[in-house]
Design a protein around this nucleic acid. Structure first.
Lengths: 398, 398
DNA sequence: GAGGTTTTTGAAATCGCTTTCAGAAAATTA
DNA sequence: TAATTTTCTGAAAGCGATTTCAAAAACCTC
């Protein structure tokens, strides 16, 4: 009734007509009848007086498609039982050719599409994969999601996303949202959740983790060796003759940050170069922090000829700060990032960076998830970070 | 049985044990029992001989959480009927305080979470909103998705995405995928689908359209005035003294492209400047095409002092092409984009561009959808494109 | 054509929750 | 205290599929 009320509110004259004799038109079964009603009313109205309530109702629903057709409708139309329809739908059991035909045509004529929700309940499978993200919208995650999306193409599974926003509370919340949708598996992208929680989640669902290594869950983790990537980047700078190499780290609480910094330091150590705390600044993985970091670095007046940012976004910010100060890249300072975002090939100059095969990571996570669900082995590819040498790096000024 | 088979395959000895006496352990109710089984088997095995089949089953499920607890479990534990549990859950009908308490504690103790699928079936509401995207992963869409995500926060609705990949066939497919999940409303982002299809979809679902204007569905469209944005951008360049302004268009088949080009041309016309086809090049909205476009432009040897790219990504590419040729921005050529992607503030130089309030668009689309579902008015904000003047534009060389 | 198999088929139970309906309990009134 | 109301509560009927089970049909064999 509330529906009726609200609906009528939008059109007082409709309300009157409604109250006259057909109070139920607006409350027909199915979804948002009012919405459809509102749009369709004019048409219905034309025939209003000539048809009786039930007919109007049926007709209205036909018109608006608001009455979902079910397996029973098909069964009736094809003159078989619902079970049989189900059988031709899923080809679980052979069905006599004649009936199968009848069913098939009925399905086409009525444009029937099984209700996945009902299916889910009956089969106990939701065909939903929960994906816990931290920042849909960031270019890095965007690629990952693309990969995941792609990996599920053609399967009957569908990913649904919930975002943790890099905040633990929201992350738990997101996880619960996903949980309540009865996903058949979970993909978790990084995040701040303690390892214990991850283990708990792994008890509950088949679980694949991207971009993070959880002890005793290693075989379910898709990641790139951050240490190695950072090591290579730094090593490359050293090979180019750089000795004073600054580093903008990510957020302290992320494992990535720690690993990348460790790689950076190890490369320095292996080259017998000092690790100078003055050349290390903490960032937040965002552009702005890269800019600020360079300001800080410059203020410290501790000269450097190369700069390794823990991700591309910060490298962008750093690049801008350098530009503002008239410091040329790569002539005065070599700049190197991490991730290889799609747009890094188009910065000026194009950014040398450590490539993470982001799309592939997402895709193979999806594939692995499918395997996991089906109890098959779930080989995860050996992904290595590649150094992509472009034009933001050069030989050190002698 | 198939499950049992597969499961056993992974561990032949388990298979034997299984066949001995507890053939049903692996086929318990609930989700992916085998998966849990696989991990837990060792433990179960230890107690294997000492407990009887049923106990083992129950215990196993407790351990692995594979047996979902239902409203009945709660009812039993609290000594009430399922109906009552449902009532306290949804507070649809008052329930005696004592019982309500009992139920609440039972819920907590068993960590019960209602099954949204069952709920959906019973209530006939999926609490799912289908979102048809064209390119999750692109920075522009990323922001939009963020906004949508945000707009649904706190509501009981959850967006699910399906991607059309800028291809009509895939778009239809994506729409069908969404359809089968029984969404309660649809949000469509742009796309190639003919208007007629959109109208059909609107019959079927409450529908909000982002970034595209569909005749007779205008009141459901969230968009920014592309014409006006482009006009302003061009006008600004003219005000800065530019007379020879090149334009990189988007894909011909997109309405955005047409509108932006129209705005560009109108501004020229209004300033009594000629529209020179030689200064107009078609792009694809991607970086690479911006780069190519500049090459083309330069080849045509028709000088220009300013360049308006139909989106930021192409502006990035253009910027790089210019850089390669040693053409300075903004000293030699002023560059202006469209969209104001998050990273456009960090290019070198920071890009002057026409800002689309992308996040807000997504958010208000989500809010509008919510209103639509609840039969309330769905005010859509009046969004105007703003010119964001940064450092890629300057006065024309005289 | 009887007897035995193998296929097909429909009825009915089920999935987990909501919701109607009618009876039970409690509260109110007389 | 009996008669009425009002408030709570449980049984049962869905929601739209799937799946088990047993009966019906069709097919073989001898």
């Amino acid at each position: 009734m509330e529906h009726e009320q609200q609906c009528a509110d939008r059109d007082p004259s409709a309300k009157q007509r409604l109250n006259q004799s057909q109070p139920s038109v607006c409350v027909t079964s199915g979804r948002s009848p009012c919405f459809a009603f509102k749009r369709e009313y004019g048409i219905v109205d034309a025939h209003y007086e000539t048809i009786d309530s039930l007919e109007a109702l049926v007709w209205l629903s036909t018109m608006t498609g608001s009455k979902r057709i079910t397996i029973h409708d098909i069964a009736r139309k094809a003159g078989v039982s619902p079970s049989t329809v189900s059988r031709v739908l899923n080809s679980t059991t052979p069905v006599a050719e004649a009936k199968r035909q009848a069913v098939t045509t009925a399905i086409q004529q009525l444009d029937y599409r099984p209700n996945l929700i009902a299916q889910g309940l009956a089969r106990g499978t939701s065909t939903i994969i929960g994906v816990l993200t931290q920042d849909i919208g960031s270019p890095f995650y965007g690629e990952l999601l693309r990969g995941i999306e792609y990996g599920f193409r053609g399967s009957r599974y569908h990913p649904i996303f919930a975002d943790g926003n890099w905040q633990q509370a929201e992350e738990y919340n997101a996880l619960n949202i996903l949980r309540s949708r009865q996903p058949e598996a979970l993909i978790i992208l990084g995040g701040l959740m303690p390892d214990a929680e991850m283990l708990a989640a792994a008890q509950e669902f088949p679980l694949i983790i991207i971009g993070r290594s959880v002890p005793s869950l290693e075989e379910y983790c898709v990641l790139v060796d951050n240490f190695q990537g950072a090591y290579r980047a730094t090593q490359y700078l050293i090979e180019m003759g750089h000795q004073r190499i600054a580093h903008i780290t990510g957020i302290r609480s992320h494992q990535d940050t720690l690993d990348r910094q460790a790689g950076y330091e190890q490369a320095l150590r292996d080259a017998n170069l000092p690790i100078n705390p003055d050349l290390i600044v903490e960032g937040t993985f965002q552009e702005q922090s890269g800019l600020l970091a360079v300001e800080t670095l410059l203020m410290r007046a501790n000269p450097f000829t190369a700069l390794f940012a823990a991700n591309d976004q910060m490298a962008y910010g750093a690049r801008l700060a350098l530009y503002r100060r008239g410091i040329r890249v790569p002539e005065d300072v070599s700049l190197i990032g991490f991730d290889d975002l799609p747009s890094s090939a188009y910065t000026t100059p194009p950014l040398t960076t450590v490539r993470q095969p982001t799309f592939e990571m997402g895709m193979s996570a999806a594939k692995a998830t499918l395997n996991l669900i089906d109890q098959r082995p779930w080989p995860l590819p050996q992904l290595t970070p590649d150094l992509v040498i472009r034009e933001s790096t050069g030989f050190a000024r002698r």
